[in-house]
Each structure stands twice: as C-alpha cells, then as structure tokens.
C-alpha cells in the first residue's frame, strides 16, 4: 500500500508509517503502520511488552520514534514532545495516570492550559474554570460530584473520567487511552466504556489500548494487533470472534491460519 492518493490519505486522521523504536538492545517497534479513521474506536491489543504503550507514546510525544513518519489529517507532522502532539489535537491518557493528587478536579483539568483574565492574563479565572468543569461533568454525565473534589480521594474510574474530561476540555480530536479499564471493577469499567463510545459518537477518534478483548469487541470498530513490536493485522470487529483476535495475539499473523492443535504445540515448543 505505498500508492495512497491524497484523497485516500485524508480519510485517516492518523497514519503511522514504518515506525521503529529501540530501547538499547530492545527492539520495541519494527516498521509499524497504523491508520485511524475519523470518529472510530480502534482497539490496540497484544501481549505485555508487545509495544502498545510505546507506539501510542510516540504519537503523544512522550517518546520520539527512531524511524518512520507520522501523518495527521493528511499532513506529515513532527511530534517531538507532548506540546507538539497537543497542538495537533492529540491527547493521551496514561496507564500510570498523570493526575495531580494535590489538586482538585478543576485544577487537574486545566493545568498547563489555565484560563486567565486581567492584563497579560496575570490572574487565574477560577470562576470560569470551575463553571466549565461543572458543565463538562454534566455534559459527559460522569460520576463526579463536585469540580472541587480532590482527585486523591477518587476511585480509579473517576480518575479516568477526570483524565477524559481534561482531553475533552481542550477540544482534542484524537484521544489515546492506555488500559483505562485495567484497574476498574465491572461496573466502573462499563461506565467508562460507555463514556468512550459516547465520545466517539461525538466525532472524536479513539485509540484504545487494552488487555480485555471483550471490551474491544463491545465498543471498538476495529482491532489492531501487535506482537513483538510488529503489526500482525487489523480486524473489523463486526467480522471476527474473540477467538480470532486471541489467536492473532498469541500466534501472530504468520501462524494464525494453522490448525489449532498443531500451532498450540509449536507456539509452546
């Protein structure tokens, strides 16, 4: 697929082309391609250490790729740091939640892009920040009681929702989430998945890393499978079963088609 036309290219909000990344001797990513469509939820799956977080961190500017290109909205871009990525409308919600336990919800949402007033924007516009947070809580129907609640006192699900609200507050159009449901109970996880589906329906494109394949099958449009830092394939959620996905994760693209017993034997051999 080297001959993409311009029209076809802009169908994608994000294109990663032949992305490679090494950490010393570890080849975390090898020439990975990824295409994300507007308003879709793409699940990113793979075993521990497959390179999921690394790939997404390259898009969010937390890491810089050794090789490869990033295209956003049909334009080739350079993402050297989180600011570059934010300017392109990309927001990442980290696995190790990047929240401030010494701050309330509002400050967590606005830190780094504070609303100000007065000459030279000298004074924090606290009133507006608290009001907008209140509105955001209502709009997203999230389970947070007050914009003044301290995040240190929140459950994992609530904390994820604060992180989502932060991304939405800044009109991010591409949202990356790294195992958001990993530490959540069933009820909270479902609430969060509902919120994610909600956001996608509003036109936000979402990359969702997860180990929970059923979650992906429930809300994603497509699933991207990584193994050993290499792309194994992209599956349409409507056309595959849980087994298909798991098989691809475990065996990789080259052996996914082989007879089950046979491959099980080989893969553990």
């Amino acid at each position: 697929m080297t001959t993409t036309t311009v029209a076809a290219a802009t169908e994608y909000v994000v294109q990663l082309r032949r992305i490679s990344k090494r950490f010393g001797g570890v080849h975390a990513l090898r020439e990975v391609d990824l295409e994300l469509r507007r308003g879709e939820i793409m699940g990113i799956v793979g075993d521990n250490g497959a390179g999921k977080s690394t790939l997404m961190k390259i898009l969010s500017g937390a890491y810089v790729a050794d090789e490869g290109e990033i295209w956003v909205n049909g334009r080739k871009v350079r993402i050297r740091n989180p600011q570059d990525s934010a300017r392109l409308g990309i927001a990442m919600i980290y696995q190790d939640l990047a929240l401030f336990n010494n701050f309330d919800v509002t400050k967590n949402i606005f830190i780094g892009r504070e609303l100000t007033r007065g000459p030279m924007g000298l004074v924090l516009d606290k009133k507006r920040m608290y009001r907008e947070t209140q509105e955001l809580i209502r709009e997203l129907k999230v389970d947070i009681k007050s914009p003044r609640q301290n995040v240190a006192s929140m459950s994992g699900g609530q904390r994820q929702m604060v992180a989502c609200a932060r991304a939405i507050a800044f009109k991010s159009t591409i949202l990356i989430m790294d195992e958001p449901t990993a530490a959540l109970g069933v009820t909270e996880a479902n609430k969060l998945l509902g919120l994610i589906r909600n956001l996608a329906d509003k036109g936000i494109s979402i990359l969702l890393i997860t180990q929970r394949i059923p979650d992906v099958l429930a809300i994603a449009d497509r699933v991207f499978v990584l193994k050993g830092g290499e792309r194994q394939g992209v599956l349409d959620v409507g056309k595959v079963t849980l087994d298909d996905v798991v098989t691809l994760i475990v065996r990789g693209k080259d052996r996914a088609g082989e007879a089950p017993g046979d491959v099980m034997y080989k893969s553990f051999g």
Binding site: A62, P82, M92, A98, F100, N101, N102, I111, G112, E114
Partner: peptide
C-alpha cells in the same frame, strides 16, 4: 503559582501537560 504547586505534586504529569 499553580504550576509551582503542580511541579511539587507530580513532575512527570506536569511535563506531559505540556509545561
């Protein structure tokens, strides 16, 4: 002032917030 307090709270998060 808010960023000073944030820096003491979670330096990595502040960096990721683009500061």
């Amino acid at each position: 002032g808010m960023r000073v307090v944030a820096l003491g709270g979670n330096e990595e998060a502040l960096r990721l917030a683009g500061v």
